[in-house]
Simulated scan of single mutants.
Amino acid sequence: MTIRTVLRSGILMVAVLAAAALSACQSATAPPLEPTVALADAGEYRLGPGDAVRVIVFGQEQLSGEFSVDGSGQIALPLIGGVAAKGLTSRQVEKRIAERLAEGYVRDPKVSVEVLNFRPFYIIGEVNKPGQYPYASGMSAVTAVALAGGYTYRAREDYVLITRTIDGEKQERRAAPNTPVLPDDVIRVPERFF
């Protein structure tokens, strides 16, 4: 063996070891990349505490108005009192309100529920202005980063970690920057190592 061959073998071995070490560091700091679809939970928006809604009972102005979902997940309405809304879509809440009003209060009620203000989302980690931000429909992780003043110089820009409640359980998943954000999500921008 020549010295040149030995040097090439040594350099190759160092490169392989460095790649393995980098891979081990990355896998130890974040769960594997999940498909965007699994994280998106792209179904209809489900109400929760902190959401503000407009309820319109057609022909009944005194029963219509703007209401908030309280900490227990209820909307307090005139005449019928609390209506459970947590975890339901606006269409499901419309149906519940109409059913309650039809119990002797209003004949054949027609109800509309519209979300006015969504719960906020939270962003932490390697962004310039971490904190709580108002949610806007159609947001992605990268637009959330932009709202938070952009990435710091130490930020990893190829993925984020999103903590979301899925089936009643908080789960953290690694996600691409174009992953849709939902209200109540906690987005963490990790630090890069090199």
Rank of each mutant, 00 (worst) to 15 (best):
R173V: 07
M13K: 14
S64P: 03
D184T: 11
R154T: 09
E172N: 08
V53Q: 01
G87I: 05
A144S: 08
Q132G: 05
V14A: 13
E157W: 01
L88A: 12
R54W: 09
G10I: 09
L33C: 06
D41H: 13
R174D: 04
T89L: 00
A176I: 08
A98N: 05
A148F: 01
R154G: 08
I3H: 15
G59Y: 01
L22Q: 12
Y133F: 10
T179P: 03
R54V: 08
A102V: 00
V142G: 09
S140Y: 04
R46W: 04
E172A: 10
R4L: 08
Y135H: 05
I162E: 09
A102W: 10
G149Q: 00
Q171P: 10
P130R: 01
V113A: 03
Q26F: 15
I80N: 13
V189K: 02
A141K: 10
G138W: 07
F118Y: 11
E169Y: 15
V160N: 07
R164P: 05
A40L: 02
V113S: 06
R8G: 14
P180N: 09
L7V: 12
A98E: 04
L116G: 08
D108Y: 09
A40W: 03
V127P: 00
A144C: 09
L182N: 11
F118H: 08
V57Q: 01
S64C: 03
S90P: 12
Y153D: 14
G50A: 05
A85Y: 00
L79M: 12
Y105R: 08
S23Y: 15
